[in-house]
Amino acid sequence: MLAGDSSLIPIAGATDVLVHWPGNLEAKTRSYLDLSGLGELRSMQWADDTFTIGALTTYWDVICNEQCAQAFPLLINAARQVGSVQIQSRGTWAGNIINASPAADGVPVLMAYDATVVMQSCEGIEEIPLDEFYFGYKQMRRRTDQLVVAIRMPRRAHDVEIFEKVGARRAQAISKIGLAITHSQDGWRIVASAVAPTILRCKAIETLLEEGSPVRSPDDLMAAIAKDVSPIDDIRSSRLYRERVLARILYHDLKGIVPSFV
């Protein structure tokens, strides 16, 4: 169906689509493709070296999964900070990726776990690393005939796993800044949200960590942060706040973990 009509919008939990629906006259003119009948997409599969979650898997599904809590604790951590239980029970990880909000809560942790996006179309299956999936504000490497069917993550041993969400209140807030940090034998992954047109890996910070350059205060991170992100002033916060808080969280959370942070 997606191949036949490029304007169709696939929907799963609909928690983004229906926000302010009655007054959203423009949204009502569009066509939607309901995925909720595709029960086989609501799944979690554990292989020896990968963990795959189907596109209709909700946050709540993951929160309730004990194996997930062991192997991918940041997924649980982030999921619990998405909206409320009422949203967690409907919202899907794949929907979070495809809605492409720069402030999404699910995407940073997936990216920090090196997730890939698995898409299917009449032409076959394509798998794209999540950190290469976005190329601009709400711009994605998904053709309109492709449907995201799963998200896959490699199973690795991590010695650092951190997720920080900075919202206007503790629960139920849209992120002003999100930060996911992991470290494994494959190196550092520093993923930031709400500080750029897309969620992204902070490569300059990662390099700084890999190289072990000394960091003595949050200020020492500002140059790398300036290379990585480009936050804006908006209704929820300011550019200055986002830059500085990103630096302060990075500094304080890594101090004591990373020898070069002193």
Partner: peptide, 13 residues
């Protein structure tokens, strides 16, 4: 002028 952006305390705050 939305409850998403005008922040009142929740039970957890």
């Amino acid at each position: 002028c939305q409850l998403t952006n005008y922040i009142i305390p929740t039970s957890d705050d």
